[in-house]
């Protein structure tokens, strides 16, 4: 494995997508600011904007770094470089997910910081917030993996839709799981085994997406 080439390709994507990341960070900071103004309406509006910013930047990264690579014919340029398709797969997966994790981490940490604000978000919501933040990561993984395997705009848009629906469905489901729902309105953090199970399932799903991506990529015989 040529790690030096993988690193160069990852930095290339970071450079080319830096403005998308900056825009999502700006949007996210504005969303957190809205939450900070207080009140239920501001809380839900800010939360909605924050989730939208994260979903949007994930989708943008997948489309720009993978689908457009084929559509705009830059794939021939990249694949003419001293790199194998396996290394290309690693560079794209790692690169896109790490670039996404910059705004994701900043905004998730920013959201969690709101729990520290006196009279801010009820502490009982913390498990739910962590599960939903991870769900956004799962959804982005699905979109990125689909984009890489299919290199198709249609399939990627379908994955974005599935990911968005999943965030809503999982949100509803988690909020109604007895072990999690019970402590959500409380002022203290109550981490249940149900919360651990859901969180572990999310990480297992991410691992499954990555394994399936490498499996499908290894079966490809035409790379251009």
């Amino acid at each position: 494995m040529n790690y030096s080439m993988i690193k160069i390709l990852m930095f290339k994507d970071w450079y080319l997508q830096r403005w998308s990341v900056a825009a999502s960070l700006l949007g996210g900071v504005v969303a957190l600011g809205i939450v900070c103004t207080g009140g239920n309406a501001a809380f839900f509006m800010g939360l909605l904007l924050l989730i939208t910013c994260l979903i949007a930047v994930g989708a943008q990264l997948a489309v720009a770094t993978m689908v457009n690579e084929r559509k705009e014919q830059t794939l021939a340029f990249v694949m003419s470089l001293p790199i194998s398709y396996r290394e290309y797969t690693v560079a794209k997966l790692l690169g896109t997910l790490l670039v996404f994790m910059v705004p994701w981490l900043v905004l998730v940490l920013g959201s969690l910081a709101l729990f520290a604000v006196p009279h801010g978000v009820p502490h009982g919501l913390l498990p739910f917030a962590i599960i939903m933040s991870t769900e956004i990561l799962v959804s982005t993984c699905l979109v990125v993996c689909t984009a890489l395997v299919t290199e198709s705009q249609g399939w990627t848009v379908a994955a974005i839709m599935v990911g968005n629906i999943a965030i809503n469905v999982i949100g509803y489901f988690v909020a109604h799981v007895a072990g999690i729902a019970k402590g959500m309105g409380g002022s203290t953090v109550s981490w249940s085994s149900a919360a651990s199970t859901v969180l572990l399932s999310e990480f297992a799903l991410i691992a499954l997406f990555l394994i399936l991506t490498f499996f499908f990529q290894s079966r490809k015989i035409d790379f251009l």
Partner: peptide, 8 residues
Amino acid sequence: DMRLYGTA
């Protein structure tokens, strides 16, 4: 049919 990165 090879293209370079338009924004760079």
